[in-house]
Amino acid sequence: MKPVEGLVGENRCRRWLALIAVVIGVTGCASGRSYVVLVPDEDGTTGRVSVSGAKGTTWLDKPNEGTVIGAPAGEKFVVAKESLTKEFGPALAATPMKPITFLFYFETGRVTLTRESEASVPSVLDAIRKRPAPDISIVGHTDTVGKNEDNVALGWGRARFVARLFESNRIGTDRISIESHGEKNLLVPTPDNTDEPRNRRVEIMVR
C-alpha cells in the first residue's frame, strides 16, 4: 500500500485506457474514480467496511485506507488527509451534530424529578435549542418495585412529563416521539422488587 494523492487508481486507469481507447475517444478516467475510504471515528477508533464488486470483496479496516469500487479483491491504498479534505470538504462540512443522550432521574414511584435532575433541566434545554430542527425520542423507565403493568404506566407518565416540560419551554413537539419501557429495560440490572434510583429515569435522545 502506498499513499495516493488525489487521483485514485491511476494505474488502473491507464490499463483501462489502453483497453478501451481504441473503441471510443476517451477523455479521461472519471469512470475509474469511484472509491471508498475508511476514516477514524471521533473517539479515535476505526471501524470496518467491505466493498464488493465484480472482482470480489475488499475489507477496509485501517485509518484512511481506501479501495476503488470494482477493483480486484484486496487492492487497497492509503489516502492522504489533505486530498480527503479536498474531495470531501463540502460533504464533511454538512455533517449534522452528533446525536446526544440525556437522563433525568425520578423519585421512587412518582412522576417527580430528583433535585439533581431538576437542576440539570436548563442545561438540557440549552443543548436542545442549539440544534437545528431537533427530533427527540423520550423513553420512560422504572425500577422493579411494584407490578409490571403499573410500571409501564409509570414509565408513560414520566415520559409524558418530560414531553410537557419541553413543550412548556417552547421546544417544538412535532418531532418528539414518546414511549415507555416500564421495568423491561433496566440501566442497572436488579432482581424484582428492587429500589434502584438509577433505573427510575427518562432517556432523552436528541438528534
Partner: peptide, 17 residues
Amino acid sequence: KGIIGVRGTHFLAKVEE
C-alpha cells in the same frame, strides 16, 4: 460498480458516473 457493507462506522465514498 459495487456494494459497500458497513460494519461501522465512519467512511467516505465518491461515485462518478
